[in-house]
């Protein structure tokens, strides 16, 4: 691809969280993210770096449409995200895989059902979903744990369930928020091999981390945030 099209394009994006004390609709306080302008090409792999509180999670929430920018223009998967066209967002979200920093597994669902959830939400038939879920759980090393509830799994195992849930739909864009936080370095490298493999198959991947060891092992372009602004990209 000579001119890879943009998977994610931020143009002068700002995000300001509403203050809990302000009346609804009134956004106060400093911007958590300010003046973000960058493009992630289709099929790219990007590290998202920055100190804790720099805004990595906020940026990823914008990218997977859990949050809308308070200013600027955000384009994801070739679609400009608009607050007045919310009906378009669920279909876009289903094409994006997300590994949340705090996993966000449903506590009353088995590992299998947690991983199967995005497929079910997308309307996939049970018979076609089942082999995919089984395969992806095996891929993340959780064969035999299908029936376990999250509380019966270790932190690392829960994280791998969250990762399996993010990739089971074979998303075009995969965003992962500190996905190796609960993994030992062997598991972390295994996970990264998994993410780079998905990237090799065409998925655009963005991974937030503050593990310099990981970044050193898997060199790739990085986007560095400091206090809500991009200080380095490339």
């Amino acid at each position: 691809m000579a001119f890879p099209c943009a998977m994610v394009r931020f143009t002068a994006v700002g995000l300001r969280y509403p203050s809990p004390t302000a009346p609804q609709g009134v956004e106060e306080g400093p911007e958590a993210l300010a003046d973000l302008t960058f493009t992630l090409p289709d099929g790219s792999f990007t590290w998202l770096l920055g100190a804790s509180g720099a805004g990595k999670s906020s940026l990823l929430r914008l990218m997977h449409l859990a949050q809308l920018p308070t200013r600027g223009t955000l384009e994801v998967l070739g679609t400009t995200v608009r607050a007045d066209r919310r009906a378009e967002l669920p279909a876009l979200r289903r094409r994006i895989g997300v590994v949340f920093q705090d996993f966000r597994l449903l506590p009353y669902l088995s590992a299998f059902d947690n991983v199967a959830l995005p497929l079910r939400l997308a309307g996939r038939s049970e018979s076609s979903a089942r082999p995919d879920v089984t395969e992806i759980l095996r891929w993340v090393g959780l064969a035999g744990k299908e029936a376990s509830l999250p509380q019966q799994l270790s932190g690392g195992e829960q994280q791998r369930v969250a990762i399996a849930r993010a990739v089971v739909t074979r998303p075009q864009l995969l965003v992962a928020d500190e996905p190796t936080g609960n993994l030992d370095s062997h598991q972390a490298r295994r996970l990264l091999a998994l993410l780079t493999e998905m990237n090799r198959l065409g998925t655009t991947v963005v991974v937030a981390t503050h593990s310099e060891e990981l970044v050193a092992n898997f060199p790739a372009p990085s986007l560095v945030l400091d206090a809500g602004r991009v200080v380095h990209h490339g």
């Binding site: 997977h64 859990a66 669920p90 279909a91 876009l92 979200r93 289903r94 094409r95 994006i96 997300v98 949340f100 966000r104 449903l106 959830l117 995005p118 939400l121 997308a122 849930r165």
Partner: peptide, 16 residues
């Protein structure tokens, strides 16, 4: 509430 927010972020529609 948690579960609804997770559903929402995974692309569930209002209708769903």
């Amino acid at each position: 509430r948690e579960a609804i927010e997770i559903f929402h972020d995974l692309g569930a529609t209002q209708r769903d």
